[in-house]
């Protein structure tokens, strides 16, 4: 997980240049940002074709792409993607729906925060994966326990980031609003809430990464669908290109989730993004 607000491509895109050399600069920028990734796949392909890699363990990238294409066009992988997105999405949204309001409340109410903090710390430090068997006992081996374990793990980054965001709001701004006679509610709406949005986004992006991590773990245990399940299943059945295709899909899901959050962040709090 990177805390960088802008991806390399965004940073490259932010640089302006004369129209004539813009394309060249852009290409250079892309090369600088993604050259290593391209080189990695090219090296892999070459090593496979030269026979330096055992194809039973590392199939050539073109075979992985072919497996991916087959899976997608036959619809088999699409079903897995849908169910995985559903699990992670429901859990993530539930964590947002609980974590942000609760965090906003706790950030403002010292007694509430003091009362809840020890138990929060305890829960947070207990790995969600260690609790997964407990959740299975409670919710059974179906969707309930899977969604819940992801929800559990994603709740804490959001909650803690929100609490921290509220507590770090510039008190001088609060006092300024107060000096104009703003009510507590107005101060919350006009100062505290907007000022907390950037730190909340840090929590959201961290949570999105955690959601995918837990998704895969949950799908590797007692699932018969989902991208995480496909990774395990393909490996059992020696469909190694398919296994890599599923891994590739997971990485893509992670990147896509981050992209969506970055777009949202740019909309909601561009003022905190671009450097002076």
């Amino acid at each position: 997980m990177t805390y960088d607000i802008l991806t390399p491509a965004e940073r490259a895109g932010a640089q302006s240049a004369a129209p004539a050399s813009r394309w060249r600069q852009r290409a250079q920028g892309l090369l600088a940002d993604y050259g290593l990734v391209l080189g990695f796949f090219a090296g892999w392909q070459i090593a496979s074709m030269a026979g330096w890699l055992n194809p039973a363990v590392f199939p050539a990238p073109d075979r992985v792409v072919a497996a991916l294409w087959n899976g997608l066009s036959s619809g088999a992988l699409v079903d897995d993607i849908v169910i995985s997105l559903q699990r992670a999405g429901i859990a993530f949204l539930a964590a947002v729906a609980l974590g942000i309001p609760l965090g906003l409340l706790m950030g403002q109410m010292r007694p509430l925060e003091r009362a809840l903090d020890p138990i929060l710390q305890l829960f947070r430090q207990t790995s969600a994966l260690a609790l997964y068997p407990v959740f299975i006992l409670i919710f059974g081996l179906g969707e309930g326990s899977k969604v819940f374990v992801i929800f559990w793990a994603t709740l804490f980054p959001i909650l803690l980031a929100t609490i921290g965001g509220v507590k770090e709001v510039d008190l001088k701004l609060v006092e300024m609003a107060h000096s104009f006679g703003a009510s507590q509610l107005t101060i919350f709406r006009r100062v505290i809430l907007p000022a907390s949005v950037p730190p909340i986004f840090v929590g959201l992006r961290l949570s999105a990464t955690t959601a995918l991590l837990l998704l895969i773990a949950a799908e590797m245990i007692g699932a018969n669908k989902g991208v995480g399940f496909q990774v395990m299943n393909a490996q059992y059945n020696f469909q190694i290109p398919l296994m890599f295709a599923a891994i590739f899909l997971l990485a893509t899901l992670g990147l896509a989730a981050n992209w969506v959050l970055v777009q949202l962040q740019r909309r909601l709090c561009s003022w905190s993004l671009d450097p002076r």
Partner: peptide
């Protein structure tokens, strides 16, 4: 310190006092 609200533009900062009233 000016204590301006960083996410509001200059006009909205100036209007802020009236708006919260």
């Amino acid at each position: 310190e000016p204590r301006l609200i960083p996410w509001l533009n200059v006009l909205r900062n100036v209007a802020f006092g009236l708006e919260v009233q």
